[in-house]
Each structure stands twice: as structure tokens, then as C-alpha cells.
Amino acid sequence: MPATSPAIEDYLKTVYAHTEWQPDPITPKVLADKLGVAPSSVTEMVKKMAAQGLVAHVPYGPLRLTDAGRERALAVVRRHRLIETWLVAEMGYEWHEVHDEAEVLEHSLSDRLLEAIDLRLGRPTRDPHGDAIPSAAGEVATEPFLLLSDAEPGHAGRVIRISDRDPEVLRALADGGIVPGIEIEVTDAPGGRIGLRAAGEVAELEPEVAAAIWVTA
């Protein structure tokens, strides 16, 4: 696989992750916002990526990964999520602390060390937040899902994934025992909140918190 720069890897990973849990393709403006860079920087980088056959793009239109771009994106995503899993499982990190560390390490670990980490962890398929870890062959496990904020009272299922965007939300949910893998039932709650019964306890979540949780459909 041809080498790419850390910057291009970050772009590819962000484009991939944007459509992993929702269907709308990413626009250059949204990409710039997610990466915290100027739109002009995105324009230049997209030109480079398109020249390398990694993205398909028309002016002012959304970005889509080519087959080559998706392959490279999955390789970076695999590194990031394996590193997060390793930091939690063996290095004493909490799940709200690992994202920034993985952002740095994903560009520097050798393939040999990554393979050793994967083997030591028992070939995990999901990271601490519930995101799928692509296999070395680029395969990704999926299952039907919906946002907790879209679930109706009475819906029962399992928490699949919790967004790692807000560490404070991760800390609060972990304190309440709401983590990937737990069985839940949606209940009625006042004031626009989302009621959630899990492990015999009932919690009332604000809409923005419920919008960071994915459950089985």
C-alpha cells in the first residue's frame, strides 16, 4: 500500500468516520469544521487526494472515498481503534482519555507492533466506545442500529456505540453504568428527556446526550 502523509491519513479517517453512523456524505465545509482547519486548506488537500486517486469530488459537491481511499482509511481507523483499546485494556487509561493519544500514536506505530497488540488483545472487534475495529483485511462488522434519541418508549436493545466527541459525556455515562454492550429499554421521561432503564436503574438523559448513543435497531 503506498505511503501517505499523516495529514492525508487524518483526512481519510475523518471522511470515513463521517458516514460510518449516518448516510449523508461529507462536504468540504463540514470536513474543515471537523478538522479545525481553513476551507482553503481543505480545498488544497482534496486536490492532492483526488490526484492520488483517494477521493472522488466535484467542485462544491460532497466528498466520497474511492476504493483505494477507503482501503487506506480503514487501515488508519484500524490503527486508531486498536491503540485506544490497548490503552484502556493494558495501560490504565479511561475511555474518555484515549482519543488524543491515539491520534498521535496511529502515525508512528510499526505494522509489526500493531499486529502484536492485536494478537495480545485477542483480536478485538470493537474499541472501548463500541466502534468497529476493521480487520487487517479491511472487513468491518456491522449490525442494524438507530440513535437512542430516535428510539420510541418501549424500545429494547443493546448499546452499540457511544460517541467519543465529548469526554464529559463519556465520564457521566460511565459513572451511570451506560456503556457499550449493556442491555437497555427506553422509557417515558418529562421535559423532552429520554428515559433509559439499564441494569435495573432508570436514568433520564438530555437529548444531546441521547444523540451520542447508538443502540440495536
Rank of each mutant, 00 (worst) to 15 (best):
1 M>V: 11
1 M>G: 12
3 A>H: 09
4 T>V: 14
8 I>T: 15
12 L>D: 01
12 L>V: 04
20 E>F: 01
21 W>I: 10
22 Q>I: 02
23 P>V: 06
25 P>K: 00
26 I>D: 03
30 V>N: 08
32 A>V: 03
35 L>S: 10
36 G>A: 15
37 V>I: 15
38 A>R: 13
38 A>P: 03
39 P>E: 03
39 P>T: 08
41 S>F: 10
42 V>Q: 00
44 E>C: 06
45 M>A: 13
48 K>T: 15
49 M>L: 13
50 A>L: 04
50 A>M: 04
51 A>P: 03
52 Q>E: 14
52 Q>A: 15
55 V>E: 00
56 A>Q: 11
60 Y>H: 12
61 G>F: 04
63 L>K: 00
63 L>A: 01
67 D>E: 15
71 E>D: 11
75 A>H: 04
75 A>R: 10
76 V>A: 15
77 V>R: 03
79 R>V: 05
80 H>M: 11
81 R>W: 06
83 I>V: 12
84 E>M: 12
85 T>C: 09
89 A>M: 09
90 E>Y: 05
92 G>T: 11
93 Y>N: 02
97 E>R: 11
99 H>N: 09
101 E>H: 08
108 S>M: 11
113 L>C: 02
114 L>M: 12
116 A>D: 12
117 I>E: 02
119 L>P: 00
127 D>G: 07
132 A>M: 06
132 A>E: 04
134 P>H: 03
138 G>A: 07
140 V>Y: 03
144 P>E: 08
145 F>T: 05
148 L>I: 08
150 D>A: 14
154 G>L: 15
159 V>Y: 02
161 R>D: 01
162 I>M: 08
170 L>H: 04
171 R>G: 12
171 R>T: 15
173 L>T: 14
174 A>R: 10
175 D>K: 13
177 G>N: 11
178 I>S: 01
181 G>D: 03
181 G>W: 00
187 T>L: 14
188 D>P: 05
190 P>W: 08
192 G>R: 06
196 L>S: 05
200 G>P: 04
202 V>D: 05
203 A>Y: 08
210 A>D: 08
211 A>S: 13
212 A>H: 09
213 I>L: 00
214 W>K: 02
217 A>Q: 10
